[in-house]
Computed example of a mutant assay.
Amino acid sequence: MTSTHPYSVDVRRLHAFSAVELYALLKLRVDVFVVEQACAYPELDGKDPEALHLRLLINGETAAYARLWRPADAPPRIGRVLVAPDHRGKRLGDAVMQEAIRVCALHFPGEPIALSAQSHLERFYRSLGFTPTSAEYVEDDIPHIDMQRPAGHS
Rank of each mutant, 00 (worst) to 15 (best):
R102D: 03
D146N: 13
P132F: 01
A24N: 10
R102S: 07
A100E: 09
P109W: 00
R70V: 07
P49G: 10
I145Q: 07
A84N: 10
F130H: 10
G79F: 00
Y65W: 04
L106D: 14
D45R: 12
D73M: 07
P76Q: 04
R67M: 04
V81S: 11
P42W: 08
P49M: 09
V81G: 09
P143I: 01
L115R: 04
G60H: 13
A19V: 15
R91M: 07
S18I: 06
M147N: 04
P49C: 11
R149H: 06
V103F: 02
F130Q: 10
R12K: 15
Y125S: 08
A100L: 08
G60I: 13
G60Q: 12
A19D: 13
P109I: 02
P132C: 11
R29F: 05
E99V: 06
A74E: 14
D86P: 06
F108K: 02
I145D: 05
L68W: 01
V30H: 03
V83D: 01
L128H: 14
A105G: 15
S154N: 11
P71Q: 08
S154R: 12
P143R: 01
T131Y: 00
A100H: 04
P150D: 13
A16V: 00
F33G: 04
R91P: 04
L128P: 08
S119H: 02
D31N: 10
T131E: 10
R126Q: 14
F124P: 08
P85H: 02
R77P: 03
V30Y: 01
S154A: 14
S8R: 12
R149G: 06
D45F: 09
D10G: 00
L106Q: 15
S134M: 05
R67K: 08
H107P: 05
G110V: 06
M1N: 04
L82P: 01
Y7W: 15
L25N: 09
G129T: 10
R123E: 12
R126G: 05
L56N: 01
A40K: 07
S8F: 00
S8Q: 10
D10Y: 00
H53E: 08
G89C: 09
D141G: 03
H87V: 07
P109R: 03
L121S: 03
C104M: 11
I58Q: 08
G129P: 13
N59C: 09
V96W: 03
V35W: 03
V32A: 07
L14V: 03
R102P: 00
P143G: 02
D73T: 09
R126A: 15
C39D: 13
G60L: 11
E21R: 13
P112F: 05
V11D: 02
T131D: 06
A40P: 06
E36V: 12
E139V: 02
D10M: 00
L26P: 06
T62K: 08
K90Y: 03
K90N: 11
L26D: 06
K47P: 04
E36F: 08
Q118C: 08
E111P: 06
S3E: 08
H5F: 06
P75N: 10
L52Q: 10
Q148S: 14
A63P: 04
Y23H: 15
